[in-house]
């Protein structure tokens, strides 16, 4: 009888232990996240024009240090940079913004950059954009008025798409470049090119979806 009871106890213990390690993500895209933050005091309705570069900068840990803007950093492959820029452009147009050349005094400038790393930095050196940014203001670096960007580390090899919308009209040599809107998209660098592109497209759309304050007045 005691043996039977011990079997019963073992069965209970087995049932209880089932699910000790519950399910986690099954697919890579379940790990994709989209983070946005903005300066609440900035009136996005009072500005309308923006400029977008033709390239997406690839931020590496230490192998680019051209501070005078004479050299260009590495860029993301055209397949992905075209996708990133087109999706940003499409969303901005849908929200009522007008794209202009960077020499035509845009209100805002959008800087997309990509980082592939196991350490997640949401800050990167200003000189990655010094070759392109008009006015030479980036020398004092970025600042995020009224909000902070979180910083994490991860043991996984992941990719970050970092989109900064800078306030071109209020940049100054003394203070640097204010960034009223920031996007951090993070996910694993896995999957076929088409699958990866689909995830990227969806994530950029989501960044705009969760930032309704970007909507221009005439479209509200």
């Amino acid at each position: 009888m005691k043996i039977k009871l011990m079997s019963l106890v073992a069965m209970f213990a087995f049932i209880a232990m089932q699910g000790c390690y519950p399910d986690g993500p099954d697919y890579v895209d379940e790990l994709d996240i989209v983070y946005t933050n903005y300066d609440a005091s900035f009136d996005f309705g009072s500005v309308n024009t923006y400029s977008l570069p033709d390239e997406v900068v690839e931020v590496n840990s230490s192998d680019f240090s051209s501070r005078n803007g004479s050299d260009t950093p590495e860029f993301v492959d055209e397949e992905y940079s075209t996708l990133i820029l087109d999706v940003i452009r499409e969303n901005m147009t849908n929200l009522g913004w007008t794209e202009v050349d960077k020499e035509d005094s845009p209100d805002m400038i959008i800087l997309p950059s990509v980082s592939k790393t196991t350490y997640l930095y949401y800050y990167y050196d200003w000189y990655y954009w010094n070759w392109w940014y008009p006015g030479g203001y980036v020398g004092r670096g970025w600042y995020y008025p009224g909000y902070y960007l979180p910083a994490y580390r991860s043991g996984f090899r992941s990719g970050i798409l970092f989109i900064q919308m800078t306030d071109a009209k209020n940049s100054s040599v003394d203070n640097g470049v204010p960034v009223p809107w920031s996007v951090v998209i993070n996910g694993l660098l896995q999957g076929s090119p088409s699958y990866f592109s689909s995830r990227l497209h969806k994530a950029i759309d989501q960044a705009f979806e969760q930032s309704p304050y970007l909507q221009q007045e005439i479209y509200r």
Binding site: D23, P25, L31, V34, A40, G146, Y147
Partner: peptide, 13 residues
């Protein structure tokens, strides 16, 4: 959370 928005799937344990 304040001015920040974070989208994704959460796994809670």
């Amino acid at each position: 959370d304040g001015t920040a928005s974070l989208s994704g799937i959460q796994y809670r344990y």
